[in-house]
Simulated scan of single mutants.
Amino acid sequence: MRVIVAAALLALSLPACAHGLLESVRGERLPILVGALLFGAAWLLYGLGARRVRPHGHEALWMHVAMLIAALSAFGPLDDWAETSTSLHMLQHMLFMLAVAPLWALGRPLPQWRAMLGATLQPLWNGILRAARYPVATAMVHGALIWIWHTPRLYLLALEHPGWHMIEHACFLFSAWLFWWSCLHAHPRLVPQALLAMLLTLMHTGLLGALLTFGDTPFYGDARDLQDQQLAGLLMWVPGGLVYLAGAGWIAWRWLGRLWRRQQRVGSSPLGE
């Protein structure tokens, strides 16, 4: 319990370290404080809910690691550095979509949150579970948000206004969470769709990364360094592609493992002889 409280306090204290708590309360930094409070509340509720509904296996570990990475990425110094560096801004996005989101999916936090909030948000939980049944659809929604927020106009809007920056973070985090959840926990009948969703995401993010890498002019204004933009494209293209390949490999390995075990059971039964 002490670890949970300390982690929640860390999440709440990060805006004070990065921007100054009083500055956050005044004016445009208010959305950062609100985001930190909501984030800390979600983390604390998960920790309390885990005492009522015990997580399975390493689920609690994945969840706490994911929340720590998210807190450091969204409210730590990286958020300040990302305002002036395209590559660090891309790194922040990659941490949300390729580290936090899959760890959230592996952590399966819904039972713990439901244990604390009861039926208050039942329509939300039901909506999340329904969306997770459609891997390709969640991949398309996630992909659309990636491209929309990387258009120059919205990219600069998020940098100039902390409120829009928090909305951008939420779009990436929750759409990526649904995408990874629907793929990593796909029903055996939906595994081909999950693999297709991974392939589509690998292809379009690789295309966006290549456009940023081979672009000969800064996409986000002359004040941005072209080489920094190219580095951002490489981050999305190469490490990002490797993560999606690893995810697809893990899904396929589990699927083939289930098929092999089923064949073994059928072959060893009297009816299979």
Rank of each mutant, 00 (worst) to 15 (best):
L121V: 15
L190F: 13
L72E: 03
G267L: 14
T86P: 02
S13Q: 03
A137C: 03
Q193G: 08
G240F: 01
L195C: 10
V238E: 09
A119W: 14
A137P: 00
Q193A: 14
R130N: 11
T201S: 13
S87E: 05
L72M: 12
G272I: 06
S268K: 11
H185K: 05
L212W: 13
L256Q: 14
L235Y: 08
G47N: 04
I146Y: 12
P123R: 00
I4E: 11
A223K: 08
R2P: 00
L226R: 04
A60F: 06
L207S: 05
A8H: 00
V141E: 01
A60W: 07
H185P: 01
L157R: 13
N126G: 06
C171Q: 08
R114K: 15
R51W: 05
D225H: 12
H19A: 13
R262L: 15
L121Q: 00
P162R: 06
R153S: 12
R189T: 02
G35Y: 10
Q112N: 02
M94R: 02
M198P: 01
V191W: 15
G127Q: 00
G257V: 09
W43S: 13
R261M: 14
W113K: 00
Y244R: 07
L33C: 01
W149R: 01
F172T: 09
Q264K: 08
F174P: 01
S182D: 06
M203G: 09
P188Q: 06
A223I: 10
V65T: 14
W149L: 13
H169Q: 12
W104T: 07
L95S: 08
F75V: 07
W181R: 15
G206E: 04
T138A: 05
M198F: 13
T151H: 10
E59K: 05
R26Q: 13
R224P: 12
M63A: 07
L10Y: 03
M140N: 06
C17N: 01
G143L: 04
A144W: 08
R51E: 14
L22D: 14
P270M: 05
P77D: 05
R130T: 15
S87F: 06
H204E: 12
G47P: 00
M90Y: 07
V243R: 00
A70H: 13
L271D: 12
E273S: 13
P55C: 11
E28H: 12
M1N: 09
T205N: 14
W125E: 08
P31K: 01
D79G: 11
R2C: 00
L21F: 00
P152E: 09
R262H: 14
G272K: 07
A246K: 03
C183I: 02
L245D: 00
W181M: 08
A82V: 09
F174N: 08
H204P: 07
